[in-house]
Design a protein around this nucleic acid. Structure first.
Length: 215
DNA sequence: GTCCAGGTGCACC
DNA sequence: GGTGCACATGGA
C-alpha cells in the first residue's frame, strides 16, 4: 500500500510547517477543515505576530478568533489554541524540553488531557513535531481500512493504529510520517465519503467493497 | 442547494 | 462505551 501510494503521489514531505510550533498550531486549526483555510488562518497569525506560545496565551480571545476565522469553528479553536499555549508554558514554551520530558505514551496521555487535543491531533504533534514513532489515524485512514476489510464492524482509532504499529514491514522512523501523508493525498484524490462502493479506485485496487484477501 | 474537509468536547443513555 | 449534536468557513 505504501509503495503504491508513493509511486502514485510522490513524497509528500509532511508536515507543511516552517517550525515545530507552527506545526502544533496547524494541527489544531486543521481539525475537520481544509488545509487551504488553515493556511489563511496561519498567514493572519503571522501578520499579527501571533504565531508564538506567548501570543496564544495573551491575545484577546476575540482577536484570536478573528485571525483564525477562515479555518472555521473559530471560537472553539481560539479556546483550543489558548489551552495549547497554557500547556506549553509548563515547559517554558520549549518544544524540545516537552518532547524529551517523558516516555511517548505518557506524553500522549498528557496531550490528550489538553482541551482541544484529541487522538489524531496528539499523535500528529508527537510524530511531526516531536519526531516520535507513533502512527496517525484520520478519517481517510479509517475509511480506506474499512474498505479493505470485508464488511463487518468499523475500526476504532486505537485498533487501526495497532495495525500499523505491529506491521514489521513499516519502519517508524522512515515511513510513519510519509505514509500518513500519502493516505491523506489518496483520500483527497479519490474515495469520496459518499461513494460507499469505491470500486473504481485506480491506485489501490484493494480499496473496494466485496471479498478481500487483505487482513 | 448539497456535500465535504487531515476532529473534538460534551451531554445523554 | 456508544451515540448524537454543536462547532463554522470555503470549495467542489
Amino acid at each position: 500500500m505504501y509503495d503504491r501510494l508513493l509511486a502514485e503521489y510522490g513524497p509528500q514531505g509532511w508536515w507543511p510547517a516552517e517550525t515545530d510550533f507552527e506545526m502544533l498550531v496547524g494541527a489544531v486549526l486543521t481539525q475537520n477543515t481544509t488545509w487551504t483555510n488553515v493556511e489563511r488562518a496561519l498567514t493572519n497569525m503571522k501578520k499579527a505576530d501571533a504565531l508564538n506560545a506567548a501570543a496564544l496565551r495573551d491575545t484577546d480571545l476575540e482577536r484570536l478568533a478573528a485571525m483564525i476565522h477562515p479555518s472555521g469553528y473559530f471560537n472553539a479553536k481560539a479556546r483550543k489554541l489558548r489551552a495549547l499555549g497554557e500547556f506549553l508554558a509548563r515547559y517554558d514554551d520549549d518544544l524540545i524540553r516537552l518532547f524529551r520530558s517523558k516516555p511517548l505514551l505518557e506524553l500522549r496521555k498528557e496531550l490528550l488531557a489538553v482541551f482541544g487535543i484529541g487522538p489524531e491531533t496528539a499523535d500528529s504533534m508527537l510524530l511531526y513535531a516531536g519526531g516520535l514513532p507513533i502512527f496517525v489515524i484520520d478519517s481517510y485512514t479509517l475509511r480506506v481500512l474499512d474498505r479493505m476489510r470485508s464488511g463487518g464492524r468499523e475500526l476504532k482509532y486505537e485498533t487501526a493504529q495497532r495495525l500499523f504499529h505491529r506491521d514489521k514491514g513499516i519502519d517508524p522512523e522512515r515511513h510513519y510520517g510519509e505514509f500518513h501523508a500519502l493516505i491523506v493525498a489518496h483520500g483527497k484524490d479519490t474515495c469520496r465519503a459518499s461513494d460507499p462502493a469505491c470500486d473504481q479506485c485506480p491506485v489501490l485496487d484493494m480499496c473496494r467493497t466485496g471479498p478481500r484477501t487483505v487482513a
